[in-house]
């Protein structure tokens, strides 16, 4: 990642004219057209966009898992922890070992790691499952493990790639409330990629809408709802109005993506 200089104070990510092209089947594919934005430290940013618009690629670039083809990303010191949609937790480690994995890689001792894991497992309601293996848990519980693991790193930024995308609707609602509570307590910088407009509005301070591929930023919308929030805001007229506005913007892009070759 081209982090020649750190981000200015108060900024978690400073994305400047980033593009991403790669080679697939001997064809040059532009995953991401020129995109620029900044993410203030301690803010919750949601990215929505049609399938294949490059929003996951963008997230990976933010986290340093991929390098931009052109442009630069400046990142605040301290690192960013990922929450993936699925397959992110390691099946050969117990729940506790998974949660403390980042700390283990940084060389934290066993007793300390155990304490750290216990703390975060309690936060996500899995205190009784420390010694279980992931295959013994439901999909929702596994995502709780993934979320606990990200928070347990203590890193200032969290990058979430559709963390709730594979869950059923009701589990998903519970998990949104969990994320809301955890975030409002911790105030880390979060960038969350999602398909669900409601999720973006419920959780985010701000929603970035991306265009169909090659994706770039189409709109940057402030979410005005006061915190602490609860899922009850979804019943308000203001929420419905914002959802309608975002969908109107997103709709063209989704239909463009649907008929793209």
């Amino acid at each position: 990642m081209s982090t020649s200089s750190p981000a200015p104070p108060g900024v978690a990510f400073d994305v400047r004219r980033v593009t991403k092209t790669f080679l697939a089947d001997n064809q040059v594919v532009t995953a991401l057209a020129e995109t620029s934005f900044t993410v203030p430290a301690g803010s919750f940013t949601c990215i929505v966009g049609p399938s294949g618009c490059g929003k996951s690629t963008l997230l990976r670039i933010l986290g340093g898992l991929e390098t931009p083809t052109t442009g630069s990303v400046r990142t605040a010191a301290g690192g960013a922890a990922f929450v993936f949609q699925e397959h992110g937790v390691f099946p050969w480690f117990t729940v506790e070992e998974n949660v403390a994995f980042g700390a283990r890689m940084e060389g934290m001792g066993r007793a300390e790691r155990r304490e750290l894991a216990r703390h975060w497992l309690a936060q996500v309601g899995l205190a009784d499952f420390a010694q279980a293996y992931p295959h013994q848990l439901s999909g929702g519980m596994r995502q709780r493990v993934a979320i606990a693991r990200a928070f347990a790193t203590g890193w200032p930024a969290l990058l979430m790639d559709e963390p709730l995308g594979a869950l059923d609707a009701q589990t998903r609602m519970l998990m949104q409330e969990l994320l809301l509570t955890l975030w409002e307590a911790e105030r880390k910088t979060v960038v969350l990629v999602t398909h669900a407009i409601e999720e973006a509005l419920l959780l985010g301070d701000r929603v970035l809408i991306m265009t169909a591929r090659p994706g770039h930023l189409k709109e940057d919308i402030e979410v005005p709802f006061p915190r602490p929030r609860s899922s009850q805001i979804e019943a308000t007229a203001a929420f419905a109005e914002m959802r309608g506005r975002i969908w109107a913007s997103l709709r063209d892009e989704v239909s463009a993506a649907a008929v793209a070759p």
Partner: peptide
């Protein structure tokens, strides 16, 4: 090995020998 598992390993600092010991080997 699922490339997504390897990516998760990298994201959490398991690279080089650590990645081999804690992720590739058990997988």
């Amino acid at each position: 090995i699922d490339p997504r598992v390897l990516e998760a390993a990298r994201a959490y600092g398991a690279t080089g020998w650590k990645g081999f010991r804690y992720v590739v080997l058990p997988a």
